[in-house]
């Protein structure tokens, strides 16, 4: 099967000379449709930089990235923004919800920006908030939600345009154990549903909920673990 995501000799370096940091150093990667991939490694190993390039948030210094067969490593700012809205869902460590908007409005926003009608956006937001167990919190502002609830809203928002790829950067990094457990459960469900998922994480539990795990050190992939096929969840 054609990979959803194909990466060849991807590279991002910072600084120069003795201070050169090889954040991502010529890595190759294929992510199959429906695969849940976790990337782990110590702080500064380059995993967040990698994720940003996979999501067209950051431009590589070298190498190529294809998403659904389309080159995405040399897009203009506007083309990248359009692609992200249409094809990629993002979940960040710090949630990045809009504080002035309710949970439902936060989830609706990317759908409206992508051209959905207000009615369709509202319907999808309601379904997704129900999906992440927050139907009764739809009218709350982020400040009135717990960390775990905010992250679940962020996951719902990431799914609102039904992207082919979901990218998550330390999704449990700001959460206590119980809230991390809720997010873990949600990711395990998304995996079981066959969502294509790339998660960068320190959290061994999230990592162990993937189909495959890659360990990064100093910008390179140094180890890989393949877990049992996803049908077992």
């Amino acid at each position: 099967m054609e990979p959803v995501l194909r990466v060849r000799r991807l590279r991002k370096h910072y600084g120069a000379g003795g201070g050169l940091v090889r954040a991502v150093d010529d890595v190759d990667l294929d992510v199959a449709p429906g695969e849940a991939l976790a990337v782990v490694g110590p702080s500064g190993c380059g995993k967040s930089t990698l994720l940003h390039m996979l999501g067209a948030l950051d431009r590589p210094d070298g190498g190529r990235v294809w998403l659904g067969g389309e080159r995405i490593d040399r897009l203009s700012e506007t083309a990248a923004a359009r692609l992200r809205r249409r094809a990629i869902g993002f979940v960040f460590q710090a949630f990045h919800l809009v504080d002035e908007l309710t949970a439902r409005e936060n989830v609706e926003l990317p759908a409206l920006l992508a051209g959905a009608s207000p009615r369709a956006a509202r319907r999808r937001a309601a379904a997704l908030l129900d999906r992440v167990g927050l139907a009764d919190r739809a009218g709350h502002l982020p400040a009135a939600l717990s960390g775990g609830q905010r992250q679940r809203v962020a996951v719902a928002r990431a799914l609102v345009n039904d992207p082919g790829l979901l990218l998550a950067d330390e999704p449990t990094g700001n959460l206590d154990t119980a809230a991390a457990g809720d997010v873990l459960r949600l990711f395990a469900e998304l995996r079981a549903e066959g969502r294509t998922l790339v998660v960068v994480t320190h959290d061994a539990r999230i990592a162990a909920a993937a189909d495959r795990l890659i360990t990064m050190r100093d910008g390179a992939f140094v180890d890989q673990t393949v877990f049992a096929p996803s049908g077992l969840v």
């Binding site: 873990l184 395990a188 539990r205 162990a208 909920a209 140094v222 180890d223 877990f227 049992a228 969840v233």
Partner: peptide, 21 residues
């Protein structure tokens, strides 16, 4: 360490799958 970690992660994946069920 990497070899040991692969084993532990497999174990964690198994136990976690059971826990989520």
């Amino acid at each position: 360490v990497d070899a040991q970690r692969r084993e532990l992660l497999r174990r964690l994946a198994d136990v976690q799958r059971a826990a989520l069920a």
